[in-house]
Amino acid sequence: MITIKNLHASIDGKQILKGINLEIKAGEVHAIMGPNGSGKSTLAAVLAGRPEYEVTEGEVNYNGKNLLELSPENRAREGVFLAFQYPIEIPGVSNINFLKTAINEIRVYKGLEPMEAKDFLMMLKEKQKLVELDGKLANRSVNEGFSGGEKKRNEIFQMAMLEPKLAILDETDSGLDIDALRIVANGVNKLKSKDNATIIITHYQRLLDYIIPDFVHVLYNGKIVKSGTKELALELEEKGYDFIKEEVE
């Protein structure tokens, strides 16, 4: 699905990613963990095409395409989805209106007809149920006045609507209570298939009790310093990140 080779990226002249290597196959779930400031969100942003970041070295192959050459909207249209760590509020833009526009522009990109209004509404209802999102929230302006947890759930709702191939969830679990966490995890699990892949960026291993990762990577100071399976997450939880720092430095 995606192969990241020796990826270096900087912002405002400051080097953040210092040689990331990662390969993810269809059907897999990868967790990326690491202390604050290690570059997890930067990696997510670079993959989504955030213009402020400059890729200084390395390459990313996504389903046979050079991902780094695609515009952010074309990455989304090719199936990349980023659930933001801090989803922003967009007053005056209705959730539904913008999702309808998004879906139809993605369909145009793929050479498909726009979706019938009736089909769109049906899909809307179904996905709302999946993430247990109140219909009232779906009808409001994007994230406006939403609580932290509601914003995160709205991200998963959008993901459910857009049915991405590669979903990157950036700390979607932070700020969620146990119930919300379960709902989000349940949503992600239901959307999982052998044809898509998920990157879960998280600080704690809590979410990984609900979404079982195939691989766990530790990102530290712009590099993946350790990879393993689910057990690595438990070890991190137990020992804290200090042991990684000690090992690396």
């Binding site: 515009s71 952010p72 909207e73 989304a76 522009e105 959008q158």
Partner: peptide
């Protein structure tokens, strides 16, 4: 960027 990242 948020809207672009959704495919608009």
């Amino acid at each position: 960027f948020y809207l672009l990242s959704r495919g608009l």
